[in-house]
Structure formats: structure tokens, C-alpha cells
Simulated scan of single mutants.
Amino acid sequence: MSNLREKHILITGANGGFGKELTKQLLEKGAYLILTDMKAPDTKPETYLGGKAAKGKILGSFAADLSSEAGCNKAYKDATKIDPKIDILVNNAGLAFMGRLLDVPMEKWKLILDVNLYAPIYLSRLFLPAMLERKYGHIVNLSSVAGITSPGELVYYSVSKFGIRALGEALDSGYRQKGVYTTNVYPFFADTNILKSEQFGGKDRKEVPKAIVDSPSMVVRAIVRGMEKKKLHVFPGFTAKMIRFLTRLSPGFLRAMERLGQKVS
């Protein structure tokens, strides 16, 4: 099991629900953090720990727009200016819009792919060479159960998360033997701002039942365990594990349930 103490970790999307919880739990593990989001995240450990003593440190933070290659290049330069040695890159930044293929405007679905898929590719390409030179590194990618099965109303989100899944598997295949590990994470719906994402193509807003929404703290605990164990695939919580099981056991089962739900609604 890998010790995260004093590991230098860059977290993208650090102002979000998972980002703040990652900051909290990694500080508790003694990690040294660099944080980024559209607005520079707070660098005071007490903001995340609620008065508890921090074992780790926040080395710095900066604002970054990861929706373009230029923005990712700037993020790389800003991060390495704060800390030239990044041991672990956590590709956590992401967004979603609900709607079928023809419902979501072009500028919206392009933005999903730019932030959710292309940014992790750009950032991985930028940070990977130094990891290989040091013969140690770790890239953590936030995929989703939507990267395992694709609901019609999350088409572009699913495309990005299937892509992240492929990216992580290919990185692991290509570089694990060289000392650079990859962890892909597949959460179900969690209580973060992504549940408030803009929706297209319907009159009434669709809400995810609170009874099936996972807590960010549970999801992040699973992520941190997966990082420590250098696991390739992490399915946090019962629902994510069950969806994985059902898609492997009977690939058509979830699609049949979706069609049944559409008839009932």
C-alpha cells in the first residue's frame, strides 16, 4: 500500500464537491497539495478541516480555465511554478449537461468534451514526462458509471466519461511497468453541484431521488483507498458496484430497465 504522506498532489476542480472533500481527506493523510479551479481555491487548511490540525500542507492555488489546450498549458506552468515536483495528478474537474444528442447546443457539448476529456489528456501529456523521469507518478481520473453504461439523456457526458475510462486503461497499460500508476474512478450520482447541471430538451426539470444519491465523503474515501492501493478501477458505493456487476453479467439488462422507465414515466 502506498503512503500518501508528503506526496505532492495537484487537484483540478478543487472548488467542487469532490474537490473540497479530496482536499480535506488528503490533508488528513499528510499530502502536500496544489489546488486549481476557475477561481483560485482557498489555501487555508482550516477551511477544509473545520479546526482540526492538518497533517499535510496546501502549497498554493491558482485559477485555471481547462477548456482549451492553451489553458491547460498555462495550468501546467502555474502548477510547476508553485511546485516543480508533482507526484500525483488528480483529473477531477468536470461538468455535465442533460439532454439527448439533438437537444444539447453545440457550444455546450463541445465544452463538456473540452473539460471532461481533452483537459485530462493535455494535462497527462504535460505531467507524465517528469513522472517517467523520476520513475514514479500517479494519474487519477474521475470517470463515472456513465462511463460504463450510457443513458440517452447524458450522451455527451457519457462520451467524455467513456473516453476517460479508455485514457486511464491505456495509460495504465503503457506506463505502470515504468512506475507511473493510473486510477480510474466511477462514481454514481453524488451530492455535488453536478446535480444542478443545466438540462435541455424537456419541459420539466428531472431530479435525481435523494435516496440514491451518494455522499462525497464516501466517494472520496474510496478514491483515496484506491490511490493508496494503486488500483486501476474504483467503484465507490453499492450502486456503482451493482451497475458494474449488471453490465458485465447482462449488458442488455440496464438498457431494458431504462426503456421500461421511459414507458412508465
Score class of each variant (00 low, 15 high):
residue 64 A to H: 02
residue 57 K to H: 11
residue 209 P to W: 08
residue 217 S to Q: 15
residue 142 L to E: 02
residue 125 R to M: 14
residue 4 L to I: 05
residue 111 L to D: 14
residue 130 A to V: 06
residue 255 R to L: 15
residue 127 F to M: 14
residue 194 I to A: 08
residue 142 L to F: 14
residue 202 G to P: 09
residue 152 G to Q: 14
residue 6 E to Q: 13
residue 85 K to T: 10
residue 222 A to K: 00
residue 215 S to C: 00
residue 60 G to H: 00
residue 152 G to I: 14
residue 21 E to H: 02
residue 128 L to D: 08
residue 54 A to F: 10
residue 83 D to N: 15
residue 14 A to R: 07
residue 147 G to I: 04
residue 182 T to K: 04
residue 11 I to R: 09
residue 177 Q to I: 02
residue 180 V to M: 06
residue 232 L to V: 02
residue 254 L to S: 06
residue 135 K to M: 12
residue 187 P to C: 08
residue 18 F to P: 01
residue 109 W to D: 12
residue 205 R to Q: 13
residue 65 D to N: 08
residue 258 E to F: 15
residue 40 A to Q: 12
residue 98 M to R: 05
residue 251 P to I: 08
residue 236 P to V: 01
residue 46 E to F: 00
residue 131 M to Y: 03
residue 146 A to W: 10
residue 150 S to A: 15
residue 98 M to E: 13
residue 6 E to H: 03
residue 154 L to M: 14
residue 210 K to G: 14
residue 188 F to P: 08
residue 48 Y to I: 00
residue 90 V to E: 06
residue 148 I to S: 10
residue 111 L to Q: 15
residue 133 E to K: 13
residue 151 P to S: 03
residue 103 D to E: 15
residue 166 A to F: 07
residue 199 Q to M: 12
residue 163 G to Q: 03
residue 53 A to K: 04
residue 40 A to L: 10
residue 128 L to F: 05
residue 123 L to N: 05
residue 252 G to N: 15
residue 54 A to G: 01
residue 72 C to G: 02
residue 204 D to C: 06
residue 162 F to R: 12
residue 103 D to Y: 09
residue 129 P to C: 10
residue 160 S to E: 09
residue 6 E to S: 04
residue 193 N to M: 07
residue 204 D to M: 09
residue 100 R to K: 14
residue 104 V to R: 01
residue 215 S to M: 02
residue 70 A to I: 11
residue 210 K to W: 04
residue 60 G to P: 06
residue 75 A to E: 02
residue 34 I to F: 09
residue 67 S to P: 00
residue 15 N to R: 10
residue 8 H to P: 07
residue 39 K to Q: 07
residue 138 H to F: 13
residue 70 A to N: 08
residue 218 M to G: 12
residue 207 E to H: 12
residue 183 T to A: 00
residue 219 V to P: 13
residue 35 L to S: 03
residue 248 R to H: 14
residue 156 Y to M: 06
residue 259 R to H: 13
residue 231 K to L: 01
residue 111 L to V: 07
residue 113 L to N: 12
residue 100 R to M: 09
residue 171 L to A: 11
residue 129 P to R: 08
residue 226 G to P: 04
residue 130 A to L: 05
residue 80 T to C: 13
residue 88 I to H: 05
residue 122 Y to H: 15
residue 244 R to P: 03
residue 241 K to Q: 09
residue 30 G to Q: 08
residue 234 V to E: 03
residue 43 T to F: 07
residue 23 T to I: 10
residue 6 E to V: 02
residue 72 C to V: 11
residue 212 I to E: 04
residue 223 I to L: 04
residue 102 L to S: 14
residue 251 P to Q: 09
residue 189 F to K: 01
residue 184 N to A: 04
residue 196 K to T: 07
residue 124 S to R: 03
residue 181 Y to Q: 04
residue 54 A to Q: 05
residue 157 Y to D: 10
residue 248 R to F: 13
